[in-house]
Amino acid sequence: MVFSFIVASEIGFWIILGAGLAVRYLLGRRRLGAVLLAGVPLLDLVLLVASYLDLRDGATAGPEHGLAAVYIGFSVVFGPSVVRWADERFAHRFVGGPPPRRPPESGQALVRYEWRNFGKACLTWIVTCGLLLAIIVFVDDPDRTADLWPWIRSMTVMLSVWVIWPIVASLTTGGDEDDSAQEQAGERPPR
């Protein structure tokens, strides 16, 4: 049951995102589009409730429960960035909005960008591992939650690998490079 909700959440995310952007830009109904886009996090809530009900009914926490926690963690933290990314591209493509922002390629802007994304990865780790630990405590049965510990280990490995990019960016970027050259070239710094 939980795996079906994960698939439905992912499909629903893109459907709601597309509908929200279409209503906002193609129909010119900005408020209704904003309401639809605000509904994206509700999918995470539905998935969380489905996982809770499944465990409450005596299911053994399996890989699908771990995947649900990971999905929720990434969606909560990176979801707004994905919505912004899609919004910029949709506005540019369909209503002549400004070109979408591009990630910085070098300089201190790149370093800030990489550390900001690593910070998001840390928040994802906190949310995901917090949910996994909450399930483990809630179920209070090591036999029924044994499959969740590898997810915590995998998320920790993910974080350990992710830190490589900001470290490399920090080590390979000259500290005196000014970001104003990028701004003068028409590139805006990332949000």
Rank of each mutant, 00 (worst) to 15 (best):
I167S: 07
G20S: 04
D178A: 13
E177Q: 14
V35T: 08
L159M: 09
V82E: 06
D44M: 02
I15V: 15
V2I: 11
V137W: 10
F94E: 14
E88V: 02
E177M: 14
D140N: 13
V157W: 14
G73W: 04
A86F: 10
G186Y: 12
Y25K: 00
V70C: 05
T60C: 01
R144S: 11
D147I: 00
I72T: 07
P63N: 09
V35D: 00
G186P: 10
M1E: 08
T60D: 09
M158I: 05
R84I: 00
H65I: 03
S180V: 15
G79N: 07
I167W: 10
S9C: 06
A59F: 04
R30I: 04
L55T: 04
P98Y: 07
A34L: 04
S4L: 12
V82F: 03
P150Q: 10
E64K: 03
A34V: 00
I72K: 07
V23T: 14
G107E: 08
W149G: 00
L43W: 01
Y71V: 09
G119Q: 12
E183S: 14
A181C: 09
W149C: 00
E64F: 02
Q108T: 15
T60G: 02
A86M: 11
I164W: 14
L131N: 05
L132R: 03
P98Q: 14
D54A: 11
V137H: 05
P190V: 10
D143H: 09
R188G: 14
L48D: 01
I164T: 14
V157H: 06
V2S: 06
P99G: 10
R191K: 15
S106C: 08
R24N: 01
F118N: 12
H65C: 05
I11M: 11
P63R: 10
